Amino acid sequence: MRNSFILIFLFLLGASACKDERSDIGDQYFKQGQYKEAVAAYTEYLKLEPTHIKSLYNRGRAYEELGQHEKALADFHKIIKEDPLNVNAYLSVTSDFYYRQQDYENTVFYADKTLKLNENNPVAHTLKGKAYQKLGKLNEAMAAYNAAISVDKEYADAYLSRALLRIHLKQTSRACTDLTMAKSLGASNAAEIINKYCK
């Protein structure tokens, strides 16, 4: 009897390890930029564990890299259904789907949902600002960028986005200050914009 128990335990342990390996294989493919292979590995793993949040999220990210945004969105929504407090899933829905699709109302909606879960998320504040700016709600956009910077003084995209809004508002001096900060924090196109507006 004891030997039977040990054999069952070892079998379950081995089966569990095989499942984990399939997820790890997907992670390795993803890191190497082999997104089709990553999707296949995650899909195989999800046949065994259909609600495994990490694999769903990573498969969604791999779908995004392949330009299969509807499939990515389906994975992110499944995560939200299984784990309604998952900030990363809300952010992915916000930025990688609705903002990219130029659906700015839904971008604001999902950014707000993200911020209800984590009010100190600079990415969500910045995406909300960008969406408001596209909608022509410039005061709301400025408030969102200011909120992003107040929670993370080293978030380059918030400075860059606020600078572009200030350029639009003809606040060139303040825009150049933001651009200098964005450049110092590594924003890749800040130098080009500085050359155009701050010389």
Rank of each mutant, 00 (worst) to 15 (best):
L85M: 07
V39P: 09
L66K: 09
Y155R: 10
G67W: 11
Y99M: 10
L160Y: 15
Q101D: 11
N120F: 11
M1A: 13
G26V: 02
A124M: 06
I194V: 08
I53Y: 00
I25P: 01
Q102M: 06
Q101P: 03
Y63I: 00
I193W: 03
S4R: 14
Y110L: 01
Y63F: 15
A124P: 12
K71C: 02
F76M: 05
L185E: 09
Y159E: 09
S161I: 06
Y29H: 15
L135R: 13
R166L: 15
A175F: 04
R61L: 15
A190C: 10
P84E: 04
A111D: 07
F76I: 00
I193V: 15
Q32P: 00
A158S: 11
Y57L: 15
Y99K: 08
D157Y: 05
D27N: 15
Y159N: 06
K134N: 13
Y29S: 05
L160C: 01
T126M: 12
Y132V: 02
I79L: 04
E49W: 02
L10C: 11
E65I: 00
K199V: 01
I149M: 09
K36F: 05
K199P: 14
S16D: 11
A40G: 01
E119V: 04
I53H: 04
K137W: 09
I6L: 13
Y110Q: 05
E37V: 03
L164N: 13
C18Y: 13
